[in-house]
């Protein structure tokens, strides 16, 4: 088993998340995480899907995904060719007494305090899975009350963009009595 990050451009249409999630479920593919959000083009959303598969079935996953009519393009983003990050929000027990120790940890990981009161503080951090995991380990001794984590999002390094390369504006002509044209 190995982990792969897929960046999937989809039409921003109702039900597309259900289609993708349903496909993974019915074909018994394991999703580690899935993050979906808008792109620079309002008609297109990007899903970043982290999956755990046998290497030979990665092709199969990609081909099955590609059969969904709303899926426009799929690319595997390798660690070396992409920037990958997830978002962590974690609430820890902290008081003015250990504030100094907390700050030291946050400095190391580039994390920030986004909310605090008398006996707790909420910390925001971004980074790859290893960094987030290390940060959580470091924070454990203060007492973790609650945490929320996003799925991974990723983008290709360099100036290229998936959308530029894949979006064709080509239109399929329809005939007035269309059927005959659609048959093989």
């Amino acid at each position: 088993m190995s982990t792969h990050t897929l960046s999937v451009l989809v039409e921003n249409s109702p039900g597309v998340l259900a289609r993708v999630a349903g496909l993974f479920s019915r074909r018994a593919y394991n999703i580690d995480s899935l993050a979906v959000g808008p792109t620079e083009n309002p008609d297109i959303s990007r899903m970043t899907i982290v999956i755990n598969v046998e290497s030979h079935s990665l092709d199969q996953v990609i081909r099955q995904l590609d059969k969904l009519v709303n899926v426009i393009h799929i690319a595997e983003l390798k660690l070396t060719d992409s920037v990958q990050a997830e978002l962590l929000l974690v609430k820890i027990s902290a008081t003015s007494k250990n504030r100094f120790d907390v700050d030291a940890v946050l400095d190391t990981y580039g994390a920030a305090i986004v909310d605090e009161d008398a006996d707790s503080m909420t910390i925001e951090a971004t980074g790859d899975a290893a960094k987030i995991s290390d940060l959580l380990n470091a924070l454990e001794r203060f007492g973790i009350r609650e945490l929320a984590q996003s799925g991974l999002v990723a983008i290709e390094r360099g100036s290229g963009s998936l959308a530029d390369r894949t979006l064709s504006t080509q239109s399929i002509p329809t005939a007035d009595s269309g059927q005959a044209d659609y048959q093989n």
Binding site: E11, D66, V69, V71, I72, S171, T174, D176
Partner: peptide, 12 residues
Amino acid sequence: VWPKGLSLPGYH
């Protein structure tokens, strides 16, 4: 309006 063309960016 019967469409003159179809746009299906994910279906080729």
